[in-house]
Nucleic acid binder design. Sequence first.
DNA 1: AACCGTCAACTAACATGTTAGTATTAAGGA
DNA 2: TCCTTAATACTAACATGTTAGTTGACGGTT
Lengths: 230, 230
Amino acid sequence: MTESSLNKIQNLSGSLSQRVYQSLREAILSMQYPPGTVIRKGAICEQLGVSRSPVAEALARLSAEGLVDVIPQSATKVSCFSMDEIREASFLRQALEIAAVEKVTLERSDEQLAALTRNVRMQALLVEDKDFVGFYQADEEFHTLLMNFTGFNGVSQVLESVSLHLVRARMLVLPEEGRPGEAVKEHQAILAAIKNQDVDAAREAMKYHIGQLIPRILPLEESHAEYFKI
Amino acid sequence: MTESSLNKIQNLSGSLSQRVYQSLREAILSMQYPPGTVIRKGAICEQLGVSRSPVAEALARLSAEGLVDVIPQSATKVSCFSMDEIREASFLRQALEIAAVEKVTLERSDEQLAALTRNVRMQALLVEDKDFVGFYQADEEFHTLLMNFTGFNGVSQVLESVSLHLVRARMLVLPEEGRPGEAVKEHQAILAAIKNQDVDAAREAMKYHIGQLIPRILPLEESHAEYFKI
DNA sequence: AACCGTCAACTAACATGTTAGTATTAAGGA
DNA sequence: TCCTTAATACTAACATGTTAGTTGACGGTT
């Protein structure tokens, strides 16, 4: 009955605005609020039991991030995809991941190499066991490790903020037969290049790996046309 | 008498929040509000003649961008520099500019090449005339052109948002004897690589060019210690 | 003189009342 | 039947009242 798809804000920390923001963001990124969904401030206030101020601030931040479109004096809805935005997000992600992997390849410590090696080995095992949820998490962790090993704490968040649309679109991509196995191989290639301190190989391996996502997203424009901008 | 260093919001467009945001952002980036400055909502309201709502929303956005630090229930001040943040911003800028110049090198049209060539020629003339303000603008334009020639409309804004701290710190760097001349040469090297469709040369030229900024910012940590985090 | 607790003043954060612009719908005319 | 138009309902945007947490200063104690 209660179709409240929002996470309870009691479980989150920070100011009310912060918690409302996190709750809405999570709902949008997980596609519980699919593109085009109209967001009613009143409904959010009621569901979360807060007043309009924190909701307004949360929506302002989401608007600045491009996750919602505000139509002045009228309505605010979850932003739709456009293939241009997705291509751009992929371009930005590629730029950042390449820069990161280059830096890590040159400056890596033995501990860092060991951590990456452990992670990739785990990926292979998970795929072997057909634990695709686990693999998805390990995949994410691989990229996060790489970002953090640059020594810059913020790059991981910047990457997230520029690839928001990519994250959402990825939710729609059906698990393809054999793809996880390929992804592991690509990760192994990246890892090997890092191990050998071969910057050129690392760059090319990462470029190829990130490039694999776009062709799998392209078909969505027809299969899920309702989520795309006119 | 009126030491209101804020631009009048009447000259700006958009909602009140939007105008307040632009006004504050401009004041912070131009160092009219130097790092550490305490921002009083009441004062802003009075100066701009608006209520606290739009000011609160504007500050929330600036906080999300990292331009102001909000101390809960206490105060909000213009964020100070940290050398780590600046290094990170430089890393991110390098990543994006390299990706852009690589793409442009491969895909450029003759018109685009002509526009870049015109710009660089203009730079040389401006430096010859010792018009350093004009050169600064042409320099910015060169990089903006490059971003836009990728075909992705947003990269220019993303670049700006990740290099906010860099922009502020750059305001403090004194014009160094001979530096503009060197910058022009670096731009010429980048342009030559684009003309020759030499991706590797373009990447290295851009990497070198962006790398030149950090060493000139480093001395600020002592000469302007008051602007840096403890 | 140095330390601690209390209190007052200030600020961000939140709640709520008000305004103004937009969209939809229904009625009226062609 | 279709288009125009006016009225209504709804929403974002703005203003303002209220709450609660922090800071700093003062006074009293050791």
